[in-house]
Design a protein around this nucleic acid. Structure first.
Length: 490
RNA sequence: GGUCUCUUGGCCGAGUGGCUAGGCGCCGGUCUGCAAAACCGCUUACUCCGGUUCGAAUCCGGAAGAGACCUCCA
């Protein structure tokens, strides 16, 4: 592949050339949601980030298998002995079957990902559908002496693992500290060491979700699913593993340990991590309870939101920042993104209507080159967007006849639009005001606008302004454009 | 407390040892009966203190502030 794509690898802490293990194939695994709540803005970030990775790898010609899991079992509130499964807890609360909760929130997740124009992954495995694979892996780890059984649960033996391998290779944590400064803390635990983590958990009598295993009726540990499903669908090792930075430790660290303990092989070549979305400078997340769901963004129905924000505004907002930096949510920032997005899309829409002539002062080849370079430099989408705004200026100038554009330039810009805006960044035109077309309301507005037009033609501006002002009070705004009068509800 | 990261103009956000990112806002203009929208122009920043260098916002050291992970979180 001649495009020298570089990605930042959390494992080596360096930008590295992306060279897949088996070109032209590329395998990517991304940690998907635990489906026990509505998707919020924080979920949109990895989904969009790795959607762009998926899209770009495909654009470069790779045959990509993209696996993004659904965690529907095994994600415990904590690793303590009485730790409750998140799904099951929610199910009890709502008096539903756990799988009803799973189905509902999986559907919700899909619904909102579609709105954000996030492509479906190639495979979307559920943890609950891969219990045998996980049991197999637990057995292998036991066989290799890297885990022990206690009271029907199986725990990963960090201390023993560390004699041969490095627990902490990804997160940079020092095992000796992990082991020593926690040893005294828990006398009552089944674990030999509090750094150990459950890879199989015996179900308490009240547990609804449970599977038979050689050790007990129980559930797999949270980290197991990703190791087992990644190996099953992408092999060992595979190319890319993605997820949020908050999963780096302990989730991804433990994934590595499990896979290495089972197979002896480093399971992943490139670890990619997106950073967090913050609100008032703090991470937006479940535990702090400061998250805003995607539905709330799309409807504007939340106390801290000044207005509704469209899915593409959210997508654009996220792409305007580099994926490894935090991005701070605010109404002002989202409003700015919304406007910028509109301007970008409108300009490229005007492109089609431009009558070509002599070539204008604009180097489209350089633009294309800049966009590729930005993408290749660890997926620098904000840079791509900045470059695209150079084209916006040129297109607008040509559309306003301030300069001319050759057919060649026009076609090249159309290709930029197709490649970068649509295929790679995944931005799409959002339906202009869906407010129109609502039966009698629409007919009435048509009548009012017609009346007002009459007044305007008679130069009775007092009356036409009166109509506009009164409508505004009623929450309807009028705009006179060259194509006629538009209206929209506020 | 341990590990790590960050601090850029009114706001959001790239980037880099010398070549004014970009967006939004503000202001000015074009257009329009007016308004809005749209378009054009303008707006020269890099927490502080030392050091290295011909030259640092960019490298090194220190200080202050903020954040992430260490328990569940995307």
């Amino acid at each position: 592949m001649e495009h020298p794509l570089k990605v930042y690898n959390s494992l080596t802490r360096k930008k590295e050339d992306f060279i897949p293990l088996n070109p032209p194939f590329a395998g990517m695994y991304v940690c998907g949601p635990t489906v026990y709540g509505d998707p919020h803005l924080g979920h949109a970030r990895p989904a969009i980030t790795f959607d762009v990775v998926f899209r770009y790898l495909q654009h470069l010609g790779y045959k990509v298998r993209y696996v993004r899991n659904i965690t529907d079992v095994g994600h415990l509130e904590n690793d303590a002995d009485e730790g409750e499964d998140k799904i099951e807890k929610k199910a009890k609360l709502d008096q539903l079957e756990p799988m009803e909760v799973v189905q509902y929130y999986t559907n919700r997740y899909h619904e909102f990902m579609n709105k954000l124009n996030v492509l479906n992954p190639s495979i979307e495995p559920h943890a609950s559908g891969h219990i045998p694979e996980q049991i197999d892996m637990v057995q292998k780890i036991l066989d290799n002496g890297m885990a022990y059984e206690a009271e029907g649960s199986v725990y990963f033996d960090v201390e023993n693992y560390s004699k041969k391998y490095q627990y902490g290779i990804l997160s940079g944590r020092n095992v000796d500290e992990l082991l020593s400064n926690t040893r005294e803390l828990d006398g009552q635990s089944e674990k030999r060491n509090s750094a150990d983590f459950a890879i199989w958990k015996k179900a308490s009598p009240t547990h609804i979700m449970r599977w038979k295993s050689p050790w007990s009726d129980g559930v797999p540990g949270w980290h197991m699913e990703c190791s087992a499903m990644g190996a099953k669908y992408l092999g060992t090792p595979f190319d890319i593993h993605g997820g949020g930075m908050d999963l780096l430790f302990p989730h991804h660290e433990s994934e590595i340990a499990q896979s290495v303990a089972a197979s002896g092989v480093q399971p992943v070549k490139y670890w990619l991590h997106n950073n967090m979305i913050t609100i008032n400078g703090q991470k937006m997340g479940k535990s702090l309870g400061n998250f805003i769901t995607l539905e709330e963004f799309f409807t504007g129905n939340h106390a801290t939101l000044d207005q509704a924000y469209s899915p593409m505004t959210i997508r654009f907002f996220i792409l305007q920042a580099h994926y490894r930096g935090t991005v701070d949510f605010s109404n002002a920032a989202l409003q700015a993104s919304g406007k910028a997005y509109e301007r970008l899309m409108k300009a490229f829409e005007r492109l089609e209507a431009i009558v070509s002539g002599a070539a204008g002062e604009f180097d489209v080849n350089k633009l294309s080159k800049d966009c590729y370079e930005a993408m290749n430099d660890d997926l620098n989408t904000p840079m791509v967007i900045a470059s695209l705004f150079d084209a916006v200026k040129f297109i607008n100038a040509a559309a306003d006849k301030q300069t001319s554009m050759s057919e060649e330039q026009k076609l090249a810009l159309m290709k930029i639009r197709k490649d970068f805006i649509e295929d790679i960044l995944g931005l799409k035109q959002e339906g202009m005001e869906a407010a129109a077309g609502k039966g009698i309301e629409d007919d009435l507005m048509k009548l009012i606008i017609e009346l007002r037009l009459k007044y305007r033609q008679d130069k009775n501006f007092a009356m036409s302004d009166f109509i506009r002002d009164e409508l505004k009070k009623a929450g309807v705004e009028l705009k006179d454009t060259k194509e006629g009068t538009e209206w929209m509800k506020n």
